[in-house]
Simulated scan of single mutants.
Amino acid sequence: MRHPTLSSDDLIAQLTAAGFAGWLNLTYSAERLVDVNPLGVDKATGIRRGLAVLGRTPQEAVAFGDMPNDLPMFACCGRSVAMGNGHPSVRAAATFTTRTAADDGFAHGLALLGLIPEPRRRPA
């Protein structure tokens, strides 16, 4: 849900005051953008389902994220990687922080995990 003038925090506060938090999951996604899901459903829900289908454990999973709506996913995975330009709460919760998205942060994070060779940095 997006609002043209309210911040995400203000939008969540107003939706909560109106009683929606009792039956919806309201999560900060980006500035002036809130994820709205059924209560108990978030990004971790999809991760757990995918892991079950693949026969893998949460400890084997790695989550990448940048905004507070990624925190449930971080909590259910063995390792978590915050993008360098991510929200402070996400960087604080992560196993480690990689470069920004614009600076090949995803590839750098995969390299830090030993999954691919270190990518070359783009010329400035």
Score class of each variant (00 low, 15 high):
M1Q: 03
R2H: 13
H3V: 03
T5M: 09
L6A: 13
S7V: 10
S7F: 06
D9E: 15
D9W: 04
D9N: 12
D10L: 14
I12Q: 09
A13G: 11
Q14N: 13
Q14I: 01
L15Y: 02
L15V: 09
T16S: 15
T16A: 14
T16H: 10
T16G: 09
A18T: 08
A18C: 08
A18S: 14
G19C: 12
G19M: 12
G19H: 12
F20I: 04
A21V: 08
G22L: 06
W23G: 09
L26D: 03
S29V: 02
S29I: 02
A30Q: 13
A30D: 15
A30C: 07
R32P: 00
R32S: 09
L33M: 13
V34D: 00
N37A: 15
N37Q: 14
P38L: 04
L39N: 02
L39R: 14
L39E: 00
V41P: 02
V41Q: 02
D42F: 02
A44F: 06
G46I: 02
G46D: 01
G46S: 04
I47E: 04
R48S: 04
R48F: 00
G50F: 10
L51I: 12
A52Q: 15
L54A: 15
R56E: 12
P58M: 11
Q59F: 00
Q59M: 10
A61V: 08
A61E: 12
V62G: 07
V62A: 04
A63I: 09
A63Q: 04
A63P: 13
F64I: 07
G65V: 00
D66C: 01
M67I: 03
M67G: 11
M67R: 07
P68I: 05
P68C: 06
P68H: 06
D70G: 05
D70I: 06
L71M: 07
P72D: 06
P72F: 00
M73Q: 04
M73T: 02
A75D: 15
C76G: 04
C76M: 12
C77Y: 01
G78A: 04
S80C: 10
S80T: 10
S80L: 09
S80E: 03
V81Q: 07
V81R: 09
V81K: 06
V81P: 00
V81T: 09
A82T: 04
G84N: 05
G86V: 01
P88F: 12
P88I: 09
P88L: 05
S89W: 05
R91W: 00
A92T: 12
A93H: 11
A94F: 06
F96T: 11
F96V: 07
T97I: 08
R99E: 14
R99I: 06
R99N: 13
R99W: 13
A101G: 09
A101M: 10
A102F: 11
A102P: 08
D103F: 12
D103S: 14
D103Y: 12
D103N: 15
D104M: 11
G105R: 03
G105N: 06
F106G: 05
F106P: 00
F106M: 15
A107T: 10
A107M: 13
H108P: 00
G109D: 06
L110F: 11
L112M: 15
L113P: 08
L113V: 09
G114W: 13
I116H: 07
I116V: 15
P117R: 10
E118H: 09
P123C: 11
P123I: 13
A124E: 14
A124L: 14
